Simulated scan of single mutants.
Amino acid sequence: MNIALPIITLIVGLLGGFFIGVFYLRKQMTRMQNDPDMLQKVAKQMGYNLNGKQMQRAQQMLKNQNPPARGQAPANRAPKRKK
């Protein structure tokens, strides 16, 4: 019991931290998609200087990467063809 409890606590902590991190990252990506200043700031931190056209492309790419809300079909995908 003295060995199992710390191991279980470690595993639960790692899983909890992972899911909190994923939630936070998704929230930041959504904010970045809607806020061009934040996107520009991140690009500068990575060493890129985006002009207006590149900024629009980056925002569009972020928009296309986000999964659709539950119950909604993706708008940018064509229906599958039957063979």
Rank of each mutant, 00 (worst) to 15 (best):
N2T: 13
I8P: 03
I8W: 07
T9A: 12
T9R: 11
T9N: 09
L10N: 08
L10F: 12
I11S: 10
V12Q: 06
L14C: 11
L15W: 08
G16R: 04
G17D: 00
I20K: 02
I20L: 12
G21I: 03
F23S: 14
Y24N: 12
Y24R: 14
L25M: 05
L25S: 09
Q28F: 07
T30Y: 06
R31N: 13
M32A: 10
M32P: 03
Q33M: 14
Q33W: 04
D37K: 11
M38L: 14
M38T: 13
L39K: 01
Q40K: 10
Q40D: 03
V42R: 03
V42Y: 00
A43G: 04
K44A: 08
K44H: 08
Q45S: 07
Q45E: 08
G47V: 04
N49K: 03
L50R: 04
L50S: 04
G52T: 15
K53D: 15
Q54W: 06
Q59K: 13
M61V: 12
K63Q: 14
N64W: 13
Q65C: 10
Q65L: 14
N66P: 01
P68T: 01
P68R: 02
P68L: 00
A69F: 08
G71C: 04
Q72G: 05
Q72W: 09
Q72V: 09
Q72F: 10
P74D: 07
A75M: 10
N76H: 15
A78W: 14
A78L: 15
A78T: 13
K80N: 15
K82F: 13
K82Q: 12
